[in-house]
Design a protein around this nucleic acid. Sequence first.
DNA 1: CTGTTAGCGCATTCAA
DNA 2: TTGAATGCGCTAACAG
Lengths: 318, 318
Amino acid sequence: MITLNDVAKKANVSKMTVSRVINHPDQVRPELRELILDVMAQLNYQPNAAARALVGRRTRVIKLTIFEDMDTTEPYYMMLLAGISNELNQHQYALQIATRNSFQNGECDGYILTGIRQTDYAWVSRLTQPVVFFGSNRQGYDYVDTDNYQAVQESTKYAVETGYTHLVFIGIAVAEPFELDRERGFREYVTTHRISAQIIRLENHSHTATAYVKAHWRNFPRNTAFVCASDRLAIGVETAIISEGGQVPTEYGVIGFDGVLLNQIATKRLTTMQQPLEAMGRAAARLLLANINHGDTPRRDQEKVIINSRLSVAESTR
Amino acid sequence: MITLNDVAKKANVSKMTVSRVINHPDQVRPELRELILDVMAQLNYQPNAAARALVGRRTRVIKLTIFEDMDTTEPYYMMLLAGISNELNQHQYALQIATRNSFQNGECDGYILTGIRQTDYAWVSRLTQPVVFFGSNRQGYDYVDTDNYQAVQESTKYAVETGYTHLVFIGIAVAEPFELDRERGFREYVTTHRISAQIIRLENHSHTATAYVKAHWRNFPRNTAFVCASDRLAIGVETAIISEGGQVPTEYGVIGFDGVLLNQIATKRLTTMQQPLEAMGRAAARLLLANINHGDTPRRDQEKVIINSRLSVAESTR
DNA sequence: CTGTTAGCGCATTCAA
DNA sequence: TTGAATGCGCTAACAG
């Protein structure tokens, strides 16, 4: 293992100078700095995370908490996780994953929180380390999210422009910001453009959607597009349409939201709003690390990172 | 933060004694040990992972590498991850997640490897730290797996006992141990019991299965059960049956394999072999940690942990 | 069985 | 701008 000392000897300086090149490069004479960087590269020096953690009173561990039940968890968490982990790895941070059931109160430097519902905020407020949310919130915590409002506006616009004349929004029956924003995106678009539309809210399961659409099949004339708040709902809708003898995409359109895996399971590959999850994961990690390192500065404004989703057009729309 | 010293003072011993209680409890007089454990509990002492890592020349980080493409990754990895992470947390180990694309060669104490294919073994053999596989292998690496052979035997038996008279095994077209074992489980069962059967191998996508079953629909008489090597395939089969006008489960049965999430998406909730993923994740972590701590002992035999799956009967079979 | 000493690799003092 | 000393919390090696 290469240590600071090895680098220092080879560069004929003290190890403090090497340490400074890493932590306060501006305090080292440029030529010397270059030389040392050179040696570090030659030796492939990797700072020892444990030692840094020890002296810095940091754990170099961040916790990701997933508040949903794991066995109904969306597969997209996997992509998110990859993004978070990639970014953390670069900064020599490791990850701990905690779930609602398995919350260990071991030490960490900060938290990334996902799947939080209104009822969980009391718990969150007791956390002493920096926190970043995945998904917006109105409690003032920093977060990373996609622009749910614009995303649904975009899908809705797409549905209209491809000629569907009646629109149905299938939302998720929870009063969380992400859902309200998606619904608002739909509502404002159809209102502004005076489009025939209806809004429905269901539990986020494919079966619920299938049952609902079948039960109310007469309400859905030909040329209806279903703009759904999740891929699960979209798959359920598609199943119902097909089982009722409707044609996708010629007579009916279906648009999902999320864009990982589930759309591959659909009979017609789903047109869906694809969230850039890897990027969002990275962003969340970066934001958290920034908070950790500026830890002492007095509380600033809530910081938000918004990353746009992209409509991925497939077989369930024209 | 509570340190060894705090505990030591309160217990009127030196910190070495406290340290021994943790690492070599048999070297401490029992009464004293109890006393110290008591104080540790009172103070809620948590050893500092960084310090242990530093002195033990360990990183206290283990890497989980997922060799599949992330965006087609099975949702069950999430459960596996939870298990691994839970176990690691208990032992003050943190996790890094690496994917095929993002393999950073930062330090770690060991690897848990998943999704490995034959072609990846060269890479694996260059790893210097202990390795545990998720999924069996014939290269001598320790692994955790479910008994694929017995699992498929069990599903097949179930299909027969519930009265399906023709059986079809839909396998995955790869020559990996897990798949060969599943296929063998099926083959031996139908051979032994002289049951009318056929074996098919497809790419592991629901569409492939749908297309195949539709194209060969005439080959599948009523009272056929499809024993599938994955939930994806099973969902695809089910879609085909329904679209061809077959009745599930009265005329046709479908059994999947894996048992997370995807079975909820199926039109009829899938009967499927449920892998105990959380437990398997924990087992993999435990096995790896054992290898790490017995690091110097000469290479023993390949160690295997086999955990049985459980048939979860739902709506796609009688 | 228990305590003392020393050092893991690094970064924050302070001094030059 | 650079270097020397000190200590983060813990454990291995030795001494008692």
